[in-house]
């Protein structure tokens, strides 16, 4: 790999450590977003042993994993891309030998490199604090597959975020689009509750969309709820979605550059 990219990664790490409180805020945010659900579901479980195949420990583990994935594998690149396009900061990248999309990816990866350690530490602390409520992976293979699926979750969210950011070539302001995307993914990714808890109609819609691979698929792997065939199908379809999205991003980038007016030049 060229040294310039390693330096870019290093510089971004330094920049992240300048704003340490900001990183901490994101981790707290990801944890708080899910804190209410285990308490609600534990109230619902009173007198019942399981709901849709999830027992008490499964459901608490589900939300802990969701918070973990959310804090270490959700890209936040769209706001940066939008700002660069609308405020003309893209000019800097277009005149330098740094491919913009690659540099953006390196910046975002550096951030997640930091949150990975924080989220893992918090996750381990939760496992020790709540041993009766947390399920551990049934085998090292499942743990490894879970890790792989989380990496793919990051790649998928990065693609979505880049696409939303690049839409500012046409829209300018993308806050609304961002919010719409967040909402759709919250429901259809299993972030809100396991998809098995949802009505059949919503489950059927979710099955044909890529969002379930963000949360539901990795947590199902971790909890050992998928057969070998289910795992193979899941990873294959996720890979195809990823390839398709990369193709769309490159096409949108090329077309978007024709629309770019280079504000501030």
């Amino acid at each position: 790999m060229k040294m310039k990219y390693i330096h870019t990664f290093g510089n971004e790490l330094k920049s992240i450590f300048v704003y340490r409180a900001r990183v901490l805020n994101w981790v707290v945010y990801d944890l708080l977003s899910f804190i209410v659900f285990p308490f609600i579901w534990l109230t619902v479980y009173a007198g019942r042993s399981s709901i849709a195949g999830f027992d008490r420990a499964d459901i608490v583990t589900y939300y802990i994993l969701t918070a973990y994935i959310s804090s270490m594998a959700l890209a936040h690149q769209s706001r940066v891309v939008r700002k660069d396009i609308v405020h003309g900061k893209l000019n800097t990248y277009l005149t330098r030998p740094f491919p913009y999309l690659l540099v953006g990816t390196i910046h975002d990866t550096a951030y997640h490199f930091v949150t990975f350690f924080i989220a893992t530490l918090v996750g381990l602390a939760v496992i020790f604090a709540l041993p009766t409520y947390v399920v551990l992976p049934r085998s090292p293979l499942l743990a490894a597959l879970f890790a792989l699926s989380v990496i793919l979750t990051y790649c998928l969210t990065l693609c979505f975020e880049e696409l939303i950011g690049l839409s500012s070539f046409w829209l300018g302001e993308t806050t609304g689009l961002n919010q719409s995307f967040d909402l759709v993914t919250t429901v259809l990714s299993g972030q809100l509750a396991p998809l098995a808890f949802f009505p059949l109609a919503i489950q059927s819609i979710a099955r044909f969309l890529p969002f379930q691979y963000l949360f539901y698929f990795p947590t199902e792997i971790y909890l050992g709820k998928l057969s070998s065939q289910g795992l193979l199908n899941g990873f294959t379809i996720e890979g195809l979605w990823l390839l398709g999205l990369v193709g769309v991003i490159l096409a949108v980038w090329r077309r978007g550059l024709y629309r770019y007016d280079g504000a501030g030049m």
Binding site: W41, I51, T174, L177, Q179, L183, V184, A193, P199
Partner: peptide, 29 residues
């Protein structure tokens, strides 16, 4: 930014829908 206003209005409806879905999912059990 008219388009964004429209998208936000649409998002708001989705957002409310999401909260209602959450309630429905909880109370289905």
């Amino acid at each position: 930014y008219r388009y964004d206003t429209l998208i936000k209005l649409f998002t708001n409806i989705l957002w409310i829908g999401m909260m209602f879905i959450t309630i429905e999912v909880i109370f289905s059990q």
